[in-house]
Design a protein around this nucleic acid. Structure first.
Lengths: 248, 248
DNA sequence: GCAAAAGTGTTGTGTATACACCCATGG
DNA sequence: CCATGGGTGTATACACAACACTTTTGC
């Protein structure tokens, strides 16, 4: 079932001096009849969403079992555009955010494939079209997946969690208007950790990236919540934020 | 000269909704005789070093002008391993650090290529073997390069500068033992900004990632400097460091 | 003894955390 | 009137930035 041989680990930035050796010992040639053509290039996209307290991943039915949406790039498109197409085709959904993750080389039986991993986010509000029920799987209880798919998912999780801290990425998981509690809930779900309400609100308000609408939401026997909306701009602005900016 | 059409920008994490359209209008098919085979996959590596106050990039002579070291991956190797090989072959140097940057799809005349960008670092001490003089170019005064090469360089710079802040990446640019002033100099060169000596030393000492040797270096008519060495471990440990870790 | 880089502390300011109660509503 | 989530402020600890002088050596 897990038959792909995955090479390379996105998390390590070290030489890992003997990786070559350990790979070379494995089952021998097939593809590499020396003048083998180019490898296949395969895009795999992991689409996340958050729904009532769970972080969900979109999977499709594959050869045996489940797998991430995948597809080939086209010479006419950016990889990003191709990835977006693949997400749409594989899930019927239009993602709000897309980010390339990592590229790795996989040798599976006789085939050689370069896998380009992507992460996408959709807001929880978006109703999955009927034919695609059974699409969403809780990330904490996934079925058995290929090694490559699993790797993409693991890495996507690391990136997503890390980016919660220093970007506005979570916004793409929410509908246009939302309450602060909903936003906090998304953070908590992804980090699987509870956050302090007052600190959370202070930070997010102070950051200035969202502003209150005049509407409120009444959805229970309690005080209605103010609905907020994002400022369209600061988005990829707020991305890289190196510390020690000593001089002005 | 700059004839490659580069698609996709590593910095943007946004959908850029109409990228497809803008690309589609351009000069038409060639490669995409529909069942065109797979694209070529091309690794480009940018090798940085720091030498007396300048951040240097290794370039080789190419078709017309200069270019980054490049080469094809092999089915037997990790992309990382292939990139390391390409750095060695293209520069004669053994890098200390290697990191994948970004993958993009490029359509250049009739050819379609997937370019996987890599960044590598070597320590300044490493003497360039004679045949490869004229290898190093100051990053602030580079010759005309292909669009794709330029993109890899720009992005590598962003990543390198950002990572100075939250990782130990700079260590890989220095020889095994070095003075604190040398370390600070490397930071200043890369950031092109002066740093406060006392704050810098306090931080780097407090971080615990390096420890003093018993040797000193006398290299002028002034007080000799203590030589430091890195702790081999915390390296890829210190990588992703998400903020607001509220709970313990 | 002087030039030149190495080395060393304190203080203020901002940012993150911990923590508990009142408010508005529906039933 | 009560249960439910919405909303608010303060005190403390830590991290970062600004800043100037003494030490050791070679010549």
């Amino acid at each position: 079932m897990v038959d792909e041989r995955v090479m390379g680990d996105p998390r390590s930035g070290r030489p890992a001096p003997d990786a070559a050796a350990s790979v070379r010992d494995e089952s021998l040639p097939d593809v590499l009849s020396t003048n083998a053509p180019h490898p296949a290039v395969d895009i795999r996209a992991i689409l996340f969403t958050v729904a009532d307290g769970a972080l969900l991943v979109a999977l499709g039915e594959h050869d045996p079992g489940w797998g991430l949406p995948r597809g080939e790039p086209s010479p006419l498109d950016t990889l990003d555009v191709a990835a977006r197409r693949i997400v749409r085709e594989g899930t019927g959904l239009q993602e709000q955010y897309l980010e390339q993750l990592y590229t790795l080389s996989v040798r599976d039986a006789p085939d050689w494939t370069i896998i380009v991993g992507y992460m996408a986010l959709v807001c929880s509000g978006q109703a999955p079209p009927p034919p695609l029920a059974g699409l969403w799987h809780d990330v904490t209880a996934l079925p058995q997946l290929s090694h490559a798919d699993q790797m993409v998912i693991d890495y996507a999780l690391v990136r997503l969690r890390a980016k919660l801290g220093y970007t506005n990425i979570a916004f793409h998981l929410l509908p246009q208007t939302f309450t602060l509690s909903e936003l906090q809930g998304a953070y908590e779900t992804i980090l699987s950790r509870r956050l302090d309400k007052r600190n959370f609100r202070r930070r997010v308000i102070a950051s200035g990236i969202l502003f209150p609408t005049s509407e409120k939401r009444r959805d229970g026997s309690h005080r209605p919540a103010v609905l907020y909306r994002f400022r369209a701009d600061d988005d990829h602005e707020t991305y890289l934020t190196p510390p020690w900016a000593e001089g002005a």
